[in-house]
Design a protein around this nucleic acid. Structure first.
Lengths: 221, 221
DNA sequence: TCATGTGAAGCAGTTCACAGCG
DNA sequence: CGCTGTGAACTGCTTCACATGA
């Protein structure tokens, strides 16, 4: 199946490209369900409003996936993108902070299907400790480092208040977590040991507020 | 207080800039609490690891906020950024889909404090309709258009499955919603009537999976 | 022939470095 | 003097357009 191998330095790939690969994969899976066997970058782009040149450039970074004059084999591309994205194994996830966001994440299908599995949840609140939320029984944050080492989770989710986030981040890194999805309203920075993806809902909301038409019809400063 | 007025075409401002304004505002509020009166772009940048040149460039798009040789007045800048971001009025929010994510959003402080207020929540599931979640009583999705018109919400949150998202988006636009935060795993596009911000948790998760170190130590394609 | 893969061009966003002003 | 505000340089991402090869 693999036509050639190409060594890729993942660090050299832009996150923007990787995000698009996810989108391509999702789109292709849809086509697969519909029974589409082959597709050109042009038709794929039109169908899911993407850019055909971008699709070709993105894929070309990782090898030659298509056949000139024909297009891409849908099943093969799904296979290759899955493997590229690291979805051919199971990633165990630990969630810290089982409030609104933490609870939603614990129960969210994308975090508990296919290649992802929530294996631990932590909170400070004695009310929550011991309760089952989604697939996990909530444990005390005090147990975090040991418990995560036991589970072998490599992905962490931070869903605690801003003032606790830095402390939690340090504990997660200490416990061997190598990637973090951070929902706390403070920008954490990727370190040598641990990559961070910040998701700041307040910032998103304020972006929308900014672009909402102004009552006076212009921005006065 | 306002030193000069400058008409700005908001459509010409990059979302990236707007997102940074949110971050600056949050940082400055923190300084305000600490009693800091004046700050230079350099010290602000060091404190919150930002870029000082970027801060100056971003602010300069909207007027002259600082004093040369001195820096910025913290209280004044907080005031100006708040107004710039449209946070000097209350934005009413409607949520469609009161599952895990919708529920978390309804209860999330950032969506129910300061300038934002959740005023309506909708779901199809008869089990959920009539139940109180956060500040709202869940209504049937069938009532969506009329109910949103009544409340006057201009911001919508889509937290429904992918196959319902397009339909919901059309109804929201019809009801007068002008900005949407979309959590459904399908990329909606901004239209003339309604701006979209897609937040795709699965894509974020797959990004982290991609950059996780590979078992074999390289990407084979 | 037809669609990929790809240099080259174009555009956007960031950083530099300093003139200008309080 | 010190820090802002800003043109100019730079970096990186996207789009174009076509040579290449099944």
């Amino acid at each position: 199946m693999a036509r050639e191998r190409k060594r890729i330095d993942t660090a050299a790939i832009s996150p923007l490209t990787v995000n698009r690969l996810s989108i391509y994969l999702r789109s292709l899976r849809r086509l697969l369900e519909e029974g589409v066997l082959r597709i050109s970058s042009e038709r794929l782009a039109r169908r899911f409003n993407l850019s055909s040149a971008q699709i070709r450039k993105d894929l070309a970074q990782f090898g030659e996936f298509g056949v000139r004059g024909v297009g891409y084999d849908v099943a093969e591309l799904v296979e290759r993108l899955s493997s590229l994205l690291g979805l051919d194994r199971t990633h165990r996830i630990a969630i810290v902070g089982m409030g609104n966001i933490g609870t939603a994440i614990a129960r969210f299908p994308a975090f508990n299907s296919g290649s992802f599995l929530v294996v631990a949840g932590f909170d400070n609140d004695p009310e929550r400790i011991g309760r089952r939320i989604g697939p996990v029984v909530v444990r005390s944050t005090g147990e975090l480092v040991d418990a995560i080492r036991e589970t072998g989770a490599r992905i962490g989710v931070i869903a605690v208040p801003a003032d606790a986030a830095l402390w939690v981040f340090a504990r997660l890194a200490e416990a061997g977590v190598r990637a973090v999805l951070n929902f706390a309203p403070i920008a954490l920075s990727t370190t040598a040991e641990c990559r961070v993806k910040n998701v700041d809902l307040r910032v998103h909301l304020e972006e929308l507020a900014f672009f909402l038409e102004r009552p006076e019809g212009g921005v006065g400063v």
